[in-house]
């Protein structure tokens, strides 16, 4: 009879024993461990609708999921107005310093203003990372206007969360040119299936991480990436509220990985980089 429920700790029909992350996710409880989401975008959807999306709404979702910290870069900042978006995040950092980590967005199409923004947000307002979106801003990640951004990150030992990675060769070039910067390549774990060189490349680059946010969700994909690149190369990012935060959170929580491997993905790999 459906609609029937049973105690979570009832014997499992196939004796599969979920680790604590999977057990929490199975019942929709907040993850009972330290969790960092490196990829989120407060603000209304640009050209599509989702309910909520403001800072307070995202914090409520974090309470439901058990995510301790989120790296915020505003949705409008990766779109039309990076100054306005960075200002929104500055308010969130100021009001919620124990939940929110600010990532400043420079739009390379406004190079002088972008440089001023980085100095203001990082040096004066406590942002701890940079987010670049070369697709939305339609500017190549190897273009000259991004060089000051990479130099700034290298000087300040900051993480850069990038929407795209161009190619494994580009990842290696940037990582070795700016060894003090930490590159987080968003959505990249899903590219591994089409670009196996990606995982092989990042395996040997200690200042490079890949995250899994996005619509990709092929069964076994995270595990396959980890097997090649090593678990130290993977970090959790959701891209919420563009998607549900729970989408990739559920993917990692239920992955066929050990509890210790999941802890590394959910927080340990990136915790030190973010100063937590």
């Amino acid at each position: 009879m459906f609609g029937h429920v049973w105690r979570h700790n009832a014997p499992h029909p196939h004796h599969h024993r979920p680790d604590p992350f999977a057990a929490d996710a199975l019942t929709g409880e907040p993850l009972n461990d330290f969790v960092i989401d490196v990829h989120s975008h407060p603000g209304p959807g640009t050209n599509f609708f989702y309910q909520g999306g403001g800072v307070d709404d995202l914090l409520r979702v974090m309470d439901r999921t058990g995510v301790d910290y989120c790296c915020f870069s505003a949705y409008t900042a990766i779109g039309p107005d990076f100054v306005r978006g960075n200002e929104l995040v500055a308010g969130a950092v100021r009001d919620h310093p124990t939940r929110v980590i600010g990532f400043a967005v420079p739009n390379p199409n406004y190079p002088e203003l972008a440089k001023e923004e980085l100095i203001r947000r990082v040096d004066e307002q406590g942002f701890r990372g940079i987010k670049i979106h070369s697709t939305s801003h339609e500017y190549p990640i190897h273009g000259p206007n991004y060089i000051p951004v990479y130099e700034f990150a290298d000087d300040h030992r900051l993480p850069i969360l990038s929407h795209t990675y161009d190619s494994p060769a580009r990842i290696r070039q940037l990582a070795t040119t700016y060894p003090n910067a930490r590159f987080i390549w968003a959505h990249a774990i899903w590219q591994h299936i089409r670009t196996p060189d990606l995982a092989l490349t990042v395996r040997d680059l200690p200042n490079v991480f890949c995250e899994m946010s996005g619509s990709g969700n092929r069964r076994g994909q995270i595990e396959a990436f980890v097997r090649v690149a090593g678990v130290e190369s993977a970090v959790f990012g959701s891209d919420y509220p563009v998607l549900g935060q729970t989408w990739q959170m559920g993917n990692v929580a239920h992955a066929d990985l050990t509890h210790e491997e999941k802890r590394k993905i959910f927080s340990e790999n990136i915790r030190g980089v973010l100063g937590l």
Binding site: N217, R219, Q248
Partner: peptide, 18 residues
């Protein structure tokens, strides 16, 4: 959408929905 898609994501979307 098994087998193409992992169960974890849609499962979590339902279980964490408010």
């Amino acid at each position: 959408k098994l087998p193409w898609q992992a169960v974890g994501p849609p499962h979590a979307e339902l279980m964490y929905a408010d």
